[in-house]
Design a binder for these strands. Structure first.
Length: 583
RNA sequence: GCCCCCGUAGCUCAAUGGACAGAGCACCAGCCUUCUAAGCUGUUGGUUGUGCGUUCGAAUCGCACCGGGGGUACCA
């Protein structure tokens, strides 16, 4: 929009600089930070500071330059006002013209508004990564929401995304579960709520493991039988793993997540051991067995000091570790897909481990290793800096949280909107509840700890998903009552209210917000944007009438409401939050 | 010891080198005969952990401290 004019202006400025022995490229425009007015602003301080002929302090000279450039630029087409103030040059847009083009563009594009052109790049995002036979808690939720949202945002920024999930289907936790099952629940089968059932049996098994005399020994013996390849245990494992996978599927469906590729830890165990042999042969790994494990001493290989440390890639007894399997998995990913980038959504405590894996693959000569990216996020805590622990019973289970939030949301819907039918109420309650739960998980920066507390999780007011959802519902309500608005041109030839200018400016920023969020893998900036947009719409809603005005004014405002709804829904969807049509 | 992250209003968080550091929650006072009050308006609240530096300009960049969290060879 207005590209020609913008180019013309920067040419004029360049020419001015050239004629006055000033360096070019020092004047950059950004949007004016005042609300209610709309235009572009350039600070003249950088130019003033680099002027060899300046006399006096920089701010004063910047003001002088701003005034001179203001005179030279004049008032190009599409602008209504210009000013030089405090060292800034401000150019104000012709709001009617700009408003009409922004709103028209959005309503033409619909939910494609803000999407970038395809880049031809393919990126894999590995996230969720649950352990089978164990419950999911709100810590896992942060991973799923963050990963899913990053996928959505990358897709919108023009990349092809492969959603991958790496399932921890082997290990002590699985053996514990199966052992407990065989001894105390043999023959039982999960009911409708598989997740819950698996979780209950897991905590029972874990309790016995730590408290019940002799149970640990039985589990160890069971583990040995598993290692020897006991067929019956293997069959039970396949069966119970499937129950767990079914339970995960239920949760993913509830959360609106799907995966393109599932990797099992058990799939890469054997190839991991082969790969470790290779590392030893190549002289990269040192085999200390049987007393010591197989290690890759990265610091001495690279000549660094206490930076990459030592990576243990195989236990001294020859059994595999997380690291053993991570290496072949990375290779498999790049073999299967022509990936330009491989992203790992894993919590920050594994930063060193991820750094080591990447370095080892690099040393092995894989050129793509540099395209691995650890998207580190902080954990979810409880108030008072308490870490969630299943041992202490402080874990907040996803199940309980969703149930409680949905119940609470249902009460609110019933009170606010009693004429809705039961199914709709339930649908709305679920969307609101899930939104409320998800929002805090992505509205904070990835590197900040999220402190979970029930009060704010169940608070549907203020900076929250329900606030944004509600704004969207209000917009929808206006549109529904207005009926068809096809063919109505939005001319915006009225004097725009500050709240209208503000709202339109935000709408125009959505494409930039999406690409910024994608570039930095930060849904949090989009979450903040969603809130700002909703707030701007609520301002508009309170200040400007739509249905009670006539003619062009009504048509323009209806188009604006329509465009706002498009952008609100788009942004919510990118965050993995659904937008109900009534609340 | 070494490495990483965090420190902004009573609490939870924004502000990605630019104009007076902004929201929400909480508190107090208002607004439903007006497109849904899950909303809006107003009041209160700050030596941006400390110090020094870089810069015309620093919450933001650098250095040194202080406080909190995490990681640091056979957990994941």
């Amino acid at each position: 929009m207005f590209e020609d004019v913008k180019n013309q202006i920067s040419q004029q400025i360049d020419q001015f600089c050239f004629q006055n022995d000033l360096p070019t490229g020092k004047v950059e425009f950004r949007s004016i930070p005042f609300s209610g007015e709309w235009g572009m602003a350039a600070p003249l301080f950088p130019l003033a500071a680099s002027d060899p002929n300046k006399t006096g302090p920089v701010p004063q000279h910047a003001q002088f330059l701003a005034e001179r450039i203001k005179d030279i630029v004049g008032l190009p087409a599409g602008f209504t006002r210009s000013e030089a103030v405090k060292g800034y040059l401000n150019l104000y847009f012709d709001t009617s013209l700009y408003a009409a083009s922004v709103v028209e563009k959005i309503n033409e594009s619909g939910h494609n508004f803000g999407n970038a052109l395809p880049t031809g790049q393919t990126v894999m995002v590995e996230y969720s990564n649950p352990n089978t036979h164990k419950p999911l808690h709100v810590g896992h939720l942060r991973n799923v929401i963050l990963g899913g949202s990053v996928c959505n945002i990358l897709e919108a920024s023009g990349k092809k995304v492969v959603r991958a999930n790496y399932i921890g289907d082997i290990g002590l936790h699985v053996i514990k579960w199966m052992c407990n099952y065989e001894m105390y629940h043999a023959g039982e089968r999960p009911g409708e709520d598989k997740m819950r059932w698996m979780a209950d049996l897991y905590s029972e098994a874990d309790r016995r493991f730590h408290e019940q005399e002799g149970f640990e020994e039985i589990v160890r013996a069971y583990f040995a039988r598993w290692d020897e390849g006991d067929e019956r245990i293997h069959d039970l494992w396949l069966q119970t793993r499937q129950w767990s996978m079914d339970g995960f599927a239920q949760v993913y469906e509830l959360l609106g997540e799907h995966f393109d590729r599932i990797y099992f830890e058990s799939d890469v165990e054997d190839s991991g051991k082969v790969l470790v042999d290779q590392l030893i042969q190549d002289g990269l790994a040192t085999d200390g067995r049987p007393e010591n494990p197989v290690i890759v001493d990265l610091d001495s290989l690279l000549g660094t000091k206490e930076e990459y440390r030592v990576a243990v890639v195989l236990r001294s007894d020859g059994t595999s570790l997380y690291a053993t399997k991570e290496l072949p998995l990375a290779i498999m990913k790049f073999d299967e897909y022509a990936l330009d980038e491989s992203i790992y959504v894993i919590d920050v405590r594994q930063s060193l481990h991820m750094k080591q894996m990447q370095k080892i693959l690099e040393l092995m000569g894989y050129p793509w290793a540099k395209n691995m990216h650890h998207l580190a996020y902080e954990i979810v805590n409880l108030p008072g800096n308490v870490i969630m622990s299943s041992r202490d019973g402080t874990v907040v289970l996803l199940d309980d949280l969703v149930r409680e939030a949905t119940q609470r949301a249902l009460e609110v819907v019933r009170e606010k909107n009693p004429e809705l039918d039961e199914d709709t109420m339930m649908d709305v309650a679920q969307k609101v509840a899930l939104g409320a739960i998800k929002y805090p998980m992505i509205s904070r920066e990835n590197t900040k700890i999220v402190t979970f507390d029930w009060d704010s999780a169940l608070d549907f007011n203020g900076q929250s998903a329900p606030y944004v959802q509600y704004a969207n519902v209000r917009a929808n309500s206006i549109l529904r009552k207005a009926g068809e608005l096809r063919g109505k041109a939005a001319r915006f030839n009225h004097a725009l209210e500050p709240s209208e200018v503000n709202l339109i400016e935000l709408l125009s920023k959505l494409p930039d917000e999406i690409s910024k969020s994608a570039r930095e893998y930060k849904p949090s900036s989009l979450a903040a944007f969603a809130y700002e947009l909703a707030k701007a719409f609520n301002d508009f809603y309170n200040q400007c009438q739509v249905l009670k005005v006539d003619g062009d004014l009504r048509d323009s405002r209806l188009a604006l409401v329509q465009a706002t709804k498009v952008c609100l829904e788009k942004t919510l969807n990118l965050l993995g939050i659904q937008a109900p049509q009534v609340m």
